[in-house]
Amino acid sequence: MPTNPRRASPPATPPTATSRPAAGAVQQATTSRVGVRKTYKLFVGGAFPRSESGRSYAVSSAAGDFLANAALASRKDVRDAVKAARAAVSPWAGATAYNRGQILYRIAEMLEGRRAQFADEVRAGEGLGKSAAETAVDAAIDRWIWYAGWSDKVAQIYGNANPVAGPFFNLTTPEPTGVVGVVAPAESSLLGLVSVIAPVIVTGNTSVVLASETRPLPSITLAEVLATSDLPGGVVNLLTGRVAETGPWLASHMDVNAIDLGGVADPALGTQMEVAAAENLKRVIRPRGGEDWSAEPGLDRLLAFLEPKTVWHPKGL
């Protein structure tokens, strides 16, 4: 195996047509180009930085083969991501539900365009067969569409005009909670990931997501989709790395308003993060092992990160 395949081109002095006609042609045909490998980086504030720590870690396929190096996020990356998420809250929560819905549909369109790439990554990472991987990707895109539809409907279903004993309109509307930390499921690298991000952002929250530690590659490809879909920078921030290292910093961060611990596999870590999250009374989705991501998701996750706001408005003259 030559160290550089580009060297395998024909020699400087071409062989004569009579002596080795076939050899030159064969060499020409087998000249392979050097593939351009993707650098998997973090996704923070709409940009793709490397980890502040400069670290990375090797990601292997389900079969144990080396796939790529992913960035190994540090606590300072968590801090930067929370800052970016906080800055994005007001424009994203202030956008109309219709506008947010349109952007989410746009993301689904972009996902559709990368179906094959996602299927390959899911297949390698989760060790699925070709058709099972494609099914998982299709389910993820459909899941995203399903949540996108809720953007301008959730207030209709979960808001209310309350009857009160006085000359007032009394209206309750669901409002976003703010910055939501998310620990993505470890096993389901795309469907699970989509199922925890979409319900958070569709209602106007922004998120800091700790991607699956062992299967992070689809999350960064998803970030590339998000970056090209009119989603404002900072609404979704994706960090790859060790959940046991960054998770507690995210859970204890005083500027994070809620956290979804559904993807935490280790019970001790889950408890530690719940305790840390209690310090500023974050809304918490507790660790729950063995979720079936292919099942109909229900609205638990979407409703968990909403705050009901009630206004009294005088009626009549």
Partner: peptide, 9 residues
């Protein structure tokens, strides 16, 4: 405190 603070405080 050993945890990140926020502008709310």
């Amino acid at each position: 405190t050993g945890r990140y603070s926020g502008p709310d405080y």
